[in-house]
Nucleic acid binder design. Structure first.
Lengths: 128, 128
DNA sequence: TCGGAGCCTCACATCAGTGTGAAGGTCAAG
DNA sequence: CTTGACCTTCACACTGATGTGAGGCTCCGA
């Protein structure tokens, strides 16, 4: 599909799809006239990228880990081809991600506990 | 304490401490000569802010939730004083945070699973 | 053959977070 | 009283992610 359709199907502006390509996160083919052509799987890819960006990762981190994040059973680089250096780098990113999760989870719990104290109702009208 | 000491104790440049104040995240007193004076608790506050910024939250989000994030048993605004609007906003932020946690956790798992396949060792030399 | 929709690149603009430096006030120690 | 460390504000600059628009090519349909 071309960039317009991908944009429509993902809700991501074409500007950003081009930016993600420039950042080496997407790798569309080009037709003879220079138009970008995306595979079906690009829809998933773009959603994955958006999710990670929304979670505060930089394009640099995403670029590093993206090839290894396909769903279970999907194709990613054969583990044998991963150099020790790359593996170390990935473990490093993994730690960073874990740190974020911890920080967010801790504060989620606090905020959640606070909100529970604010009004012990869940949306059901308990008007008094 | 003054800004220099806070900077030393937190490792955060004074420039950023001033910026966080401008962003309404820190609220130091001022002495007669205009110097900022921070309470002891500012050390924790700054670390909290840094953790959240590193986790990808914007100062805007942090400003919204920070008052309610003190550790358990600490002082925060009495739940009675929280308006329904504020509570709704907080719940909204809570959802956003949860979405981030989910996304990060999902991808942490994937990356972690991949790395496990790369080299099924943990640091022990299993050369051969 | 023309119009319009869609694509291309290039480039400037914005916002948030941060670095850096200038110009100057405060204060304790010599 | 001067020096030096520390503080003040102001301001310009960079990066990363994103918005926006100009100028031009491609291709389909009337």
């Amino acid at each position: 599909m071309r960039i317009g359709e991908l944009s429509r199907r993902t809700g991501v502006p074409t500007r950003l799809l081009r930016y993600y390509e420039e950042q080496d996160l997407l790798h569309p083919e080009r037709t003879g006239n220079g138009y970008r052509t995306y595979a079906e799987s690009a829809v998933q890819d773009v959603q994955q990228i958006r999710g990670l960006l929304d979670s505060g990762l930089t394009t640099e981190m995403i670029r590093a880990i993206l090839p290894y994040l396909s769903g279970p059973g999907e194709i990613h680089p054969p583990p044998e081809s991963v150099t020790p250096g790359t593996a170390a780098l990935l473990r490093d990113h993994l730690d960073r991600i874990q740190a974020r999760i911890d920080c967010l989870a801790r504060n989620h719990d606090r905020l959640s506990a606070y909100l529970a104290a604010v009004r012990p109702v869940d949306g059901n009208s308990v008007d008094g």
